[in-house]
Design a binder for these strands. Structure first.
Lengths: 219, 219
DNA sequence: CGAAGGTCTGAACGGTGGTTCACTTCTTCG
DNA sequence: CGAAGAAGTGAACCACCGTTCAGACCTTCG
């Protein structure tokens, strides 16, 4: 034998793979799945088409990896907030919705690709799986809220599905357009809606003890 | 001239076009947009590939027609119930959600194709438009509810988007599997969730004004 | 009937885009 | 250095699918 894989080579290989996945993610966020042809992705990663197939057996496999990484990040963040955040279940739910929505709004392209954009079959299957995880995370905190008497008895899975769908729907459409300041208001509304959806007691009408956030017309 | 289009010929033509759209709809409901190649659709309609192009200038145009017809039916039914049904806005909202969900569950394949399945760009654009209509219909009744003091002040568009998204999400996944009886329970839960989402007063606890909201541990 | 002018057919075409592979370039180690 | 063998390249390949078109077949009316 006159050649063996040395650590530096392996490092370069790993880095190239990383670079490939990152570039592909950027392309997907920018141009959607349909715009992410092997040719384009390879070019973005600064490698040849053939090299792509050194790292992944097929375009589908690469797409799935891209999806998993990005979705994995989001699920992790959301779960963390919902499960191990501070405050009672309601506060955590509120915080979770806000974080989820804010992150999505900050990277609309990627969010759209992950949540809604047309994708090939393999990615579609993965998407179902990850939606299930979003829902599981929401469902858990809803169940906790019910158990603690903060929320009315309900089917937590349906509520969780609704939250996932609702947030996705609100985000998919240019409801807020490219606006940045509108995003804040949108998130606030989304949050209020989410709490109602889970059956949290209404904040304002009950009594306004210490909530000075009345609509003072500030756009 | 020695030939002019006679009514019977025109009738045959129209019938063929109808047949084509219906068959295409069936194929889409069964196999999704990706399974609806021109070849397959033509075969299903009992005509040759070439004839398809006598009725539509392109595959996209046919797909859009299929989408419009099916979605148009749903929007019409939903709007009718929401806008001109009986009862106050809350009752109409409840009824609307139920009708929407029940119809979708009765034809999951088509519902999925209309609401969620990957489709080509033209259909995607159309989908955005129709989602807007669903939302407009929901938003209207929510606004009425707010105006009549039945619902708390809120951004009706966000709530409407949430309802659309929530129902879609609940339907997309095999939450209820192929079950028939489970559908009833699912619709009931969906309905309760929708009312909460819009901020309708809780049904059971409200009825007991004397603050008897004790958690009696029921499940 | 038969000429005129439709409708209908399906094999062939062309564009797109994933995949391959013969070849070049680089790295390792005796 | 130079043999061995991996990494890297990109033009060619191929499968798929929407679209076309030359000809077959049908309907109308003088």
């Amino acid at each position: 034998m006159a050649y063996r894989k040395t650590p530096s080579v392996q490092g370069r290989l790993d880095a190239a793979r990383e670079q490939l996945v990152d570039s592909a993610t950027a392309v997907v966020a920018e141009a959607g799945w349909s715009g992410a042809s092997v040719t384009v992705v390879a070019a973005a990663a600064g490698m040849s088409v053939g090299s792509v197939y050194q790292h992944f057996p097929s375009k589908s496999a690469l797409a799935v990896e891209v999806f998993r990484r990005a979705s994995g990040r989001e699920v992790r963040v959301l779960s963390e907030v919902l499960a191990h955040g501070t405050g009672d279940p309601l506060e955590r739910l509120a915080h979770g919705v806000e974080v989820f929505a804010r992150r999505a709004l900050e990277n609309r392209g990627l969010a759209h690709a992950l949540l809604a954009a047309p994708a090939d079959a393999a990615v579609g299957r993965e998407r179902l799986e990850y939606r299930r995880r979003y829902r599981a995370a929401f469902a858990r905190v809803v169940r906790e809220g019910v158990a603690e008497g903060l929320l009315p008895s309900q089917d937590a899975d349906v509520t969780a599905a609704a939250l996932t769908g609702a947030i996705g729907e609100v985000l998919v459409d240019p409801l807020a357009g490219p606006g940045e300041d509108a995003a804040g208001a949108l998130v606030a509304e989304l949050l209020a809606m989410s709490l109602r959806c889970a059956g949290a007691p209404p904040p304002a009408p009950a009594a306004r003890p210490a909530c000075p956030s009345d609509d003072e017309g500030l756009r």
